[in-house]
């Protein structure tokens, strides 16, 4: 199919982009990688009045260090994330999850920021961002910038804290050093499919003890979810299959996953427990 007609703007700076969004009328869509937006427009499930294509806003691309943080430009493609040396050093969990997104051709176009703003709870990056306590740097018209923590960024199904007229500029995540182990444990029916459930786990070990744990759950609710109970149970615990299994048993606590063609809610909750055990086991180096 062919998308419905739309007005098209192709800014090259953030300021131009914000102006184009402001001038775009009632229904503006921001085209980042387009790998979700264009299919939806082809099926005419979306027919925006204006499309603001930010693929040429080069200032939004790339990964840099800022003290203890990695700063990932919203328009950095999945491919560039996977191949970035800083990500390889400090962002292994991001790399592992990004490698599972779609396929190589889609990863050449799809962007880190686009996937987060799309806020599909079945998408792989939101749970990772949440687990890492990412901070979302958002630009508004007139150059104003605000920072939103991940816990507040994902508001609902396909809904974020971005207001009309705003643009996600970059995402800050803490560097995880070599004392961290990570694992993105994804469960789907075929390689291309969205996650039925996935678990993003990062675990910091000191000797035989877990000192920090970050667990994010994909597709276990209308937004990504943090498995706080598991994290609490892990911190301070000795690294063993028993303690990990016991902690992971709490992975589904408080979740209200949906039922769809691939899984009913109770099965998703079961998977969350199994996959959390597997993710933490791997992340902890067991």
């Amino acid at each position: 199919m062919i998308p419905a007609s739309f007005a098209y703007a192709r800014p090259t700076t953030v300021d131009e982009a914000l102006q184009a969004i402001a001038a775009g009328g009632e229904d503006v869509k921001i085209l980042a990688g387009g790998q979700s937006l264009i299919p939806v427009m082809r099926l005419r499930l979306a027919a925006p009045e204006t499309v603001v294509d930010i693929t040429r806003v080069t200032e939004l691309r790339g990964v840099r260090e800022d003290g203890d943080s990695l700063v990932i430009g919203a328009m950095t493609t999945h491919h560039d994330v996977i191949t970035d040396p800083l990500i390889a050093q400090y962002g292994k969990l991001i790399a592992e999850a990004t490698e599972t997104v779609a396929d190589p051709a889609v990863r050449h176009r799809g962007t880190f920021g686009g996937a987060l703003v799309h806020a599909d709870p079945a998408g792989d990056l939101p749970a990772v961002a949440l687990a890492l306590d990412a901070e979302f740097v958002i630009a508004g018209l007139g150059g104003a910038r605000r920072t939103v923590p991940a816990t507040e960024f994902f508001v609902d199904y396909l809904t974020t804290a971005l207001a009309d007229g705003e643009l996600l500029v970059e995402v800050r995540v803490p560097k995880l050093g070599s004392d961290w182990g990570v694992r993105y444990e994804k469960f789907n029916r075929v390689a291309q499919a969205w996650s039925i459930v996935a678990v993003a786990a990062a675990v910091r070990r000191e000797g035989s003890r877990i000192t920090e744990a970050r667990i994010g759950l994909t597709n276990m609710g209308s937004t990504p979810i943090r498995a706080r109970a598991v994290e609490a149970a892990l911190v301070g615990a000795d690294v063993s299959l028993e303690t990990v299994t016991a902690a992971a048993a709490q992975a589904a606590e408080g979740t209200e996953p949906s039922s769809d063609l691939n899984a009913q809610a109770d099965y998703r909750q079961h998977l969350a427990r199994v996959l959390t055990r597997r993710a933490v086991t791997a992340a902890a180096g067991l």
């Binding site: 099926l43 029916r189 075929v190 390689a191 291309q192 499919a193 969205w194 063609l261």
Partner: peptide, 15 residues
Amino acid sequence: TTGTFVDYLVPSAMD
């Protein structure tokens, strides 16, 4: 409900 290749699962080389 399986109206696109997103839901009608034709296997890839990985599957």
